[in-house]
Amino acid sequence: MQTLEIAGREFTSRLFMGTGKFSSNEIMKRAIEASGTQMVTVAMKRIELDDEQDDMLGHIMSPDICLLPNTSGVRDAEEAVFAAQMSREAFGTNWLKLEIHPDPRYLLPDSTETLKATEQLVKLGFNVLPYCQADPTLCKRLEEAGAAAVMPLGAPIGSNKGLRTRDFLQIIIEQSGVPVVVDAGIGAPSHAAEAMEMGASACLVNTAIAVAGDPVAMAVAFKQAVEAGRMAYEAGLGAVSDGMVAEASSPLTAFLLD
């Protein structure tokens, strides 16, 4: 399999993992290890002064893993830039999953604010990976703004519905000059394999692993699905049908004499 390069860093695993919704840090840690992932998202929260401090990061940190802090919770570009600066200070990394969703119900990304924030954050030296609508034009705009990759959604976040935006993802993959990471909506390993077969650079999976009956086993399933899909893409998929249109009685090319 070809290695994936984003912002100068190489990844041999094309499965990115989110850390939300696990029943315990311990299970999360084991799932991360089992998945072989090298890119893990984290969020930020205000410290509760009276609570005992858990060591969530300690369960993730490893030299093989690139931490991808997100800006979850921000509602516009201004808040995103502030969150990004906090994240760089807290985690000591320029990597950033930019997500701006003012809508608390479906958590759908705000395209206008996302583009605006990307432009500003790139200037501030961040490796910006924006979570965005599966909008091919927007993705080109984000690329021009300097995004290190684009992360279009497959379906509403957490819905596990698979690649509902398939036709648009296909166009994004075809046009993009930066890696395309399919984010949100991937509910089963078959969905991840499908995205990879289409030529996606990577998949980001969270809910489908975290809420599985056995998250560790599901992490392995996703690892294998992403690898299988990528290998199939690189190997060149065979004919789906034989692509032949029925012969008509009067051939179209009869005029060609030589």
Partner: peptide, 13 residues
């Protein structure tokens, strides 16, 4: 050739 003919989106290959 048959594989290429069956594809909606063809690569340069």
């Amino acid at each position: 050739v048959r594989r290429a003919l069956s594809k909606e989106r063809c690569s340069v290959d």
